[in-house]
Amino acid sequence: MKYQMLKDMLMRDIYVDFIREQIKSGDKVVALEADLAKCSGMIALQKEFPDRVINTGIAEQNMASVAAGLAAYGFIPFIHSFGPFVTRRICDQIMISICYAKQNVKIIGSDPGITAELNGGTHMPFEDIGVLRSIPDILIYEPTDNVEFKKILPQILAHVGPVYVRMYRKVPPSVYDENKDETFNLFKAKVIREGSDVTIIASGIMVAESLEAAKMLEAINISAEVIASPIIKPLDTETIIKSLKKTKAAVTAENHNVCGGLRSAVSEVIVENYPVPLRCVGVKEKFGEVGKQAYLKTAFSLNAIDIMSAAKEVLTNK
């Protein structure tokens, strides 16, 4: 079989391959689905390992608490549904059965923000991070690309405690070169481009947009530093503040409501540690709607050009 470059893979396949390895090599990991195994790709494993892949049917609340029960029995459950149905729909089950009860359950929400595309407003989570961020102990992680996700998955498994993963399903934009021996730490943000005038802090699909924006800014003599911040809770304060001490201006970029997501998390940290002006790119208190990604990016102002404008604007406030 021809080797497939990581950057060409569906992100969901990286998840499913990882679970397959774990099921084959150990007796702890179980995967739960609520009638979206076809969408995550887990359907293949459901046939291969019917004991270890449990499909609860369309019953997400039940799935979450069943997972907590499995965790109490020593298993490490990974539960999946579309982002909104595995966060806001089951918020109390995550809070009580999983987090408050201290059960080691991993939560995979697919199609973050506008990547829900044609499924539209009901399926387009702009609030998932906000909903979960106020619950103690849970980690919130949004992969930057396939290279990073593949290396972070073992760390998610090794971490004892709940983790929410905001997983893209299709082929995500590629940021890291898989041939370079890049290392990743679940708890760390990463400076992926150095600059001196402004720091752009981004997550998910907005990282690639931010790199694009940085190039556009360079053309007009603005030097932008770009930080990929896949870990949104707990935020990597150290890396962010260190950069802001150099640039003294911040822009956040996220595929989520700016209320409750990355912008909120970054604001909290800089206000307490090192106040600098901040502008944000993200969904501005709107609900989702149907459309293809290109349309939605423009409808919600999530393009590189929007990041560039925000950067130019924040500089006038320095």
Binding site: N119, G120, T122, V290, G291, K292, Y295
Partner: peptide, 13 residues
């Protein structure tokens, strides 16, 4: 149906 800006989204609204 499902085109950007439509009044007919995939799910009832």
């Amino acid at each position: 149906l499902n085109k950007g800006g439509t009044k007919l989204p995939s799910h009832c609204d």
